[in-house]
Design a protein around this nucleic acid. Sequence first.
DNA 1: GATCCGTGGAT
DNA 2: TATCCAAGGAT
Length: 363
Amino acid sequence: MRDTATFDLSRSLLAWYDRHARDLPWRVSPADRAAGVQPDPYRVWLSEVMLQQTTVAAVRDYFLRFTARWPDVRALAAAPDDQVMAEWAGLGYYARARNLLKCARAVVDQHDGRFPDSHDALLKLPGIGPYTAAAIAAIAFDRPETVLDGNVERVMARLHDIHDPLPKSKPLLKAKAAALTPDDRPGDHAQAVMDLGATICTPKSPACGICPLRDPCQARAAGTQADLPRKMPKAPKPTRRGHVYIAQRADGAILLERRPETGLLGGMLGFPGSDWAEDAAEAPPFPADWTLLPAEVRHTFTHFHLILRVWTATVPAKVSPEGLLVMPKHAFRPGDLPTAMRKAHDLWRGSSTSGKIPRAGLS
DNA sequence: GATCCGTGGAT
DNA sequence: TATCCAAGGAT
């Protein structure tokens, strides 16, 4: 039962969203939504998968490239795996790209090319968990589902001044979020809470002064907003080391490998090399006149730091070792590599801008 | 429940 | 420089 205060709070949030909703490539504005425009479930799904643990700024161009190249779920389902993995390169969490293809093909094969509109049916699809199922059901189909992501957790923890640490407090935060979800405009509501968390109720120095929930916010009243939500401490990251081997043939071709489907950087292209361990031994993939580059690659993954030594060699054009992929010079694009491998390439080519190199494809 | 799985921007 | 952390899911 939603009481009057909860009703008013939800209305305040929607009113704020009507005025401040961000213009995002995958979003139907509240005005257009009110005029009857329906979101495309394919675009909602694609954006939500890309946005898993990933910022809007990082996703935007990837979303535009994907939708330009594969405008609907049937086009994506028909795409070759390696092209999709290459297009995802640099965005991270590559299991998402593998599951993206599995999901697109399941939608085509089992649902006649149309995304199911219920939370339970969506949850059965690869790469769609509790959050994404609720987000698609709410945003694409305007079902009264409650989304619980990092933004909603933070907003609810502050609104109700909840001090129990995550993830133990998740059920309580979900209940608070559910109590706030309206039957009217649940899709806009879901986006409103997340927008609020992303732009006002931010992790550090939240802008309480301009927050539409300033008055009812209990953490604001108690002065605890900067300390919420509390989280369990994280384990420190160990450092691992490894060797990679970049061979270029006399005809310009580069020798690469397709990494195994599971595990780190699964399914992505990479240079052959050693295991990554505390103290990895050299492991040239075939005999050659390997030269060690005078600098190292440093890269940080989710749970460890990596220091990579990069060896290079020029080999005859006929060299084609078993298990390696001969990538012709004209077909090789560093942007198709995951970032750790792209850094090794950049170190070799001297284009070692530490920053990100914009990928080709748009405009 | 705990662990694995990327990346880049903000602080 | 080091840490946090982002529209999480699979195992």
